[in-house]
Write a protein that binds this DNA or RNA. Structure first.
Lengths: 207, 207
DNA sequence: TTAAGAATTGAACTCCAGTTCATTCTTTTG
DNA sequence: CAAAAGAATGAACTGGAGTTCAATTCTTAA
């Protein structure tokens, strides 16, 4: 008459955990962190409030996992572009476009990941989320420097700046959707700014 | 036997209000928004908790005023640099440096004004705080475009990006102070990135 | 089948910053 | 000076989100 956790039971538990993370993801993508309570998540996942706390010690911990998963996915897409063929300049342009376009495609989630005010812990999470992007950009810039595409520079600072620039340019549009053509123009301009920030570019004709 | 508010009384009231705002300012500059409660402010201002609510309908409203004042001061300094003599490029460089240096000189306050997580209302305040900087930068860029110093571009987007770049580059250093020389290097690099982002620059020798 | 122990439940609880308001103190004016 | 009205006080309250835990249900193994 002893109970031991069997594989079957384990997979039930794992499934519940998965349900919770998935539900949380869906709800953040809909209402952000602040608009999503634990009871909401539990309901959406088909479990009880208490169960959530069996799997995660706190709301912050749960969202930390949600953010990390969402990040990993996004960052893989980003890295693919960074490692594709082409000059550093071409790749950097595509990277900026990819970042911006994907963020605008999932506005609420991107907003939650990039800018939503929450608390210090989640803020730290956010900074950690931005870091991989920065690092990837830094690498491409360094490649560009070595290939004489970009002037010599502190690629670390430039990459930070590019991340900051993209986020700042997206803050508004993430809250209030743009028309398709406006979005296109924004992404184009943003790409141009980021390319210039990394180094010299042939000057374009005026007006 | 009717009481009417006399000039003397009015100035008492105004003085109290002023004390409150000043106290709040001091405390934010020390502990940020989150670390500063209304009772703390009341104590520091030498009034009661309730009095704070006579002058301001909410904590948010009070801080809104504190932020606006701090902003006005900063933005005036910024505008002065923007309107000084020199080419657009020279002025832009000084603007970036001014912004960064002043922020780093009052780290906690700058952090509260620029990046501290609070709530949507204060977030909106923050965006409003950034806007004047952006607009001033936009003007200088447009002057630079007209003077053929910068390539033709959407100055609105570039100015957003510059604000975002500066803030992103400062987020870390605002939390954990840098050594003086590190700070100098950061400001230099940041300035270079921002100048490049606005337009062509003579390429620097490598390595 | 049944007892032991694990998993789940969800109503109730905690916590705490922001806010309130009955009371007290001040000022004005007849 | 006394009455009326305003200003100030600060202990107590509140609201709501996050969290807990006694009770219940389910699973295992003898």
């Amino acid at each position: 008459m002893v109970y031991r956790r069997t594989p079957k039971m384990q997979s039930r538990i794992d499934a519940a955990r998965e349900q919770i993370v998935t539900a949380a993801h869906r709800l953040v993508a809909e209402s952000g962190y602040g608009g999503t309570g634990i009871p909401d998540i539990a309901k959406e996942a088909g479990v009880s409030t208490g169960s959530v706390y069996v799997h995660f010690p706190s709301k912050t911990a749960l969202f930390s996992e949600v953010y990390q998963r969402a990040s990993r996915h996004e960052i893989e897409a980003f890295r693919e572009v960074a490692e594709a063929h082409g000059t550093a300049r071409e790749r950097l342009a595509r990277m900026v476009e990819t970042f911006a376009r994907r963020a605008l495609a999932g506005r609420k989630l991107a907003w939650a990941l990039l800018v939503e005010s929450v608390n210090q812990e989640i803020d730290a999470e956010r900074l950690r989320f931005r870091e991989p992007y920065r690092a990837i950009i830094e690498d491409v810039i360094n490649e560009g420097i070595n290939a004489d595409e970009f002037v010599y520079q502190d690629a670390r600072v430039t990459s930070m700046c590019i991340v900051g620039a993209i986020v700042e340019a997206l803050v508004g549009p993430l809250s209030n959707a743009l028309e398709t053509d406006e979005e296109g123009r924004l992404v184009d301009s943003l790409t141009q700014v980021c390319l210039r920030s990394a180094g010299p570019i042939n000057s374009e004709p005026r007006g």
